[in-house]
Design a protein around this nucleic acid. Structure first.
Length: 779
DNA sequence: GAGCACTGC
């Protein structure tokens, strides 16, 4: 006890300022001295007797049950009282005292709460009454991995506290800061808090930080947890609560040096689990069969089926619908797909009611939702009684050897299986059909899904850590330390980009790169772009690279869609086509109909424009010039040449060279790759840079633009140190080029670039017609 | 001649 009071020294009460008496407590706080503590409140104020860090559950509850809202000084509404009654029934409410005891006597508390426990809405409020953050000129933050959750929980809590959203309670997510000077409780995305930490490494604006959904183990949550361990050493006044849903809380507890753990039961209904007696050879077929079986034989109640991706889902939906419609002894069925790239209005259909029976008293109608992992955590569908879990999902994996991230259909974890089955018991008892054996569940499934940090390229993570002032990455206390090779790859990348020097220290350039909310390569490109006279264009291109594909291609209108896309094609590469699309979109007046007519995704373009506005703000903040080259500059083509050089300034490590065989080989790694068929690059380009390496049945490079070997040597001499190159044609070409330069032809070489550009474009046309003729002959 | 699980700044 005494230890704590030393840490959290009581604040001496200043004399109340009578001129502030007409203001609400939180308004009195802003900038005023009275604001510093609650003792500046009138004696009959609901919080008058509260001592920060020493309040009791009874005090908090009494204040909540009073007539006057202590944070606004307004009478509580009737709606508030109704909501309050509901809150009192949440499982977490019984643990208010226990929680306060723990948080008052410990700096870090781990809290395990199952779904429906109320932890996300109530715990932050418990803390508000104990911390009274506004009286200290501080705030309480509660992080969420997803934006939607941050927004909707904030909305809910604002209602529960009877305040206007964005005032005392608010949220802060990218593109939308819904907080004010008065905000004392702020929900936010974990990425947002991380970004804040990069500029305020002690997070001094907060008196308490709650990391919610920590079991999700997002990259940001993992970094934040490591950061919390650092910060609490330096800020004894900071309280930290780590909230998680799964049972592996012991791991969190251990990580935070045996912090106390509190467990709150959930409020869900029992779910009966069924396993298959034998392993299934074809999970898709088994899943469809099971869905139909349930539909024919089980009582009313909707079905949720988990599959791995869009194509599989659409396929399954068709088959289930077709077969169910053939069943004479079953009720009507409504089959609905759900995945993130589905347009929002199609996504909303999952909330539609199941169809009624064909005749009164007939077999029940049923809704079947066929979904990706989206329905496992991000979205909740009420009314689900039956869950079918084939046991697979697509997961990101990173291969540091070839530096490639890819998606792989993999078995899920036990935690994931549990989460899935839980979806059947939201509103009443349910059943979960696992399409694998109980033995497989027990012995083959891993406990929890590997955290993202073990499955990702860590370029951005390492840069962020450096920006946070963590110099010694090898000894940084990761909850799960990434493979040394993955860290090495990241350090190597950042060193070549000159974000880190040879000793691994962050350069001023690296510090600036970390400010941009994009991959390091793209950040480098943005920062270099003014030197190439084209920062306006690079901002547009980078924005489009940071949103999903803009080009729509409905299966039944492929030809039209491809024709529409061809209008934007630039012969030298896809990055320039993106620029064309952006420009056309802006010229259309950001017209939705124009997008529809041209097979462009309006929402995507709109969000790209949002991103661009943000990037522009960062560019200005970094004092980078916003410039364009004159379009009709002589020699011809220099406008696009400037842009391509700027692209190379960021992408010089993602280069492929075309061998005489016609194959492309990636530079240094010597992976055989092909241009993605969607590429608009229409001629044999010897050197290309690419945005993305897509690993499917074949190796593809996607979003590709032609560059010149000369540029690469100029831009990244360190990377193009040929001693480090494996033997290949590209290496020999570069060697010859270097020899020629040594012989003194360097500058003339560069002047001739543009001439060659023109001659190249001529030969390109003849290439094309050559090819066409050959095609015809073959037929 | 194609296949984008899901988030986030």
């Amino acid at each position: 006890m005494s230890d704590r009071s030393q840490k959290r020294a009581k604040i001496e009460a200043p004399k109340e300022n009578p001129y502030l008496a007409h203001l609400s407590p939180s308004e009195r706080l802003v900038g005023g001295t009275a604001a510093k503590n609650p003792y500046g409140l009138a004696a009959d104020h609901p919080l008058a007797n509260f001592v920060i860090g020493e309040t009791t559950a009874e005090q908090g509850e009494a204040a909540e049950e009073g007539d006057i809202n202590p944070f606004t000084d307004k009478p509580f509404s009737d709606r508030y009282k109704k909501i309050l009654a509901g809150r009192r029934k949440l499982p977490v409410n019984k643990h208010r005292k226990e929680f306060l005891d723990l948080i008052q006597n410990n700096q870090v508390v781990i809290l395990v709460g199952e779904t429906g426990s109320g932890k996300t809405t109530q715990i932050p409020q418990f803390m508000v009454f104990d911390e009274l953050p506004a009286f200290k000129g501080k705030k309480i933050a509660c992080t969420q991995p997803r934006r939607l959750a941050a927004m909707s929980v904030a909305q809910r809590v604002a209602e529960e506290m009877d305040v206007v959203m964005g005032q005392e309670v608010g949220y802060n997510i990218r593109f939308e800061d819904c907080t004010s000077q008065k905000t004392m409780l702020q929900y936010m995305t974990d990425g947002m808090l991380l970004r804040e930490a990069m500029n305020d490494p002690l997070l001094s604006r907060y008196s308490a930080i709650i990391l919610d959904e920590a079991h999700d183990r997002t990259l940001s949550t993992d970094i934040l947890m490591g950061l919390m361990k650092e910060i609490i050493k330096k800020r004894s006044d900071l309280k930290v609560v780590v909230m998680s849903a799964t049972l592996d809380a012991g791991k969190f507890q251990k990580y935070f040096d045996d912090a106390p753990l509190m467990s709150v039961p959930g409020r869900t209904f029992p779910v009966e689990i069924y396993y298959t007696p034998e392993p299934e050879s074809d999970y898709l077929e088994a899943a469809i069969f099971t869905a139909l079986q349930i539909h024919r034989t089980e009582d009313a109640g909707d079905i949720l089926l988990f599959l791995t991706g869009e194509e599989e889902i659409e396929d399954a939906c068709r088959k289930i619908k077709a077969e169910a419609d053939q069943m004479p002894d079953a009720g009507p069925i409504k089959v609905l797909p759900l995945y993130s790239t589905l347009p929002p209005q199609a996504q909303k259909r999952i909330y539609e009611e199941a169809p009624p029976p064909r005749t009164s008293g007939g077999r029940p109608g049923r809704k079947v939702v066929v979904s990706t992992n989206l329905a496992e955590t991000s979205l909740t569908i009420d009314g689900i009684v039956y869950v079918i879990d084939p046991g697979f999902s697509k997961q990101k994996v990173y291969n540091p050897r070839i530096r490639v991230e890819s998606l792989l259909v993999s078995p899920i974890s036990k935690a994931s299986a549990q989460q899935r089955s839980g979806r059947a018991g939201r509103t009443r008892p349910g059943k979960c059909f696992r399409l694998y054996t109980e033995n497989a569940f027990m012995k083959e499934l891993i406990e929890t899904t590997y955290p993202e940090i073990l499955r990702s390229n860590l370029g951005t993570v390492v840069l962020q850590l450096k920006k946070l002032g963590i110099d010694d990455l090898v000894h940084f206390d990761f909850m799960d330390p990434p493979a040394p090779e993955t860290l090495m790859r990241a350090l190597e990348l950042l060193n070549y980009l000159e974000a880190l020097d040879d000793d691994g220290n962050m350069t001023p350039l690296g510090s600036m790169m970390a400010d941009f909310p994009v991959d390091p390569q793209l950040a480098k490109m943005l920062i270099a772009s003014p030197q190439y006279g084209c920062s306006n264009e690079i901002m547009s291109i980078v924005s489009l690279l940071n949103v999903p594909l803009v080009f729509m291609r409905p299966p039944d209108q492929r030809k039209m869609a491809d024709e529409a896309k061809a209008q934007f094609s630039h012969p030298d590469g896809d990055h320039l086509s993106l620029l064309n699309v952006y420009h056309a979109y802006k010229t259309s007046g950001e017209d939705q109909k124009w997008c529809y007519d041209n097979f462009c995704n309006y929402r995507t373009l709109k969000s790209a424009d949002n991103v661009r506005t943000q990037l522009k703000r960062y560019m200005e903040r970094c004092d980078l010039d916003l410039v364009s080259l004159p379009f009709d500059e002589r020699p011809k083509g220099s406008y696009y040449t400037g842009i391509r050089k700027a692209l190379a300034a960021g992408y010089f490590m993602q280069v492929a060279h075309q061998e005489r065989s016609g194959n492309y080989l990636t530079v240094k790694d010597n992976q055989v790759v092909r241009l993605h068929p969607s590429s608009c690059l229409d001629h044999n380009a010897e050197w290309v840079i690419y945005n993305e390496f897509v690993l499917t049945n074949q190796n593809y490079i996607r979003t590709v633009t032609e560059v010149k070997a000369e540029w690469l040597l100029d831009i990244a001499p360190n990377y193009f140190d040929l001693d480090s190159f494996p033997n290949c044609e590209g290496k020999r070409v570069l060697e010859k080029l270097i020899q020629r330069r040594k012989a003194g032809g360097g500058d003339r070489d560069r002047e001739r670039d543009y001439d060659r550009d023109e001659s190249r474009s001529k030969s390109r046309k003849s290439d094309r017609s050559d090819k066409d003729r050959k095609e015809k002959r073959r037929r």
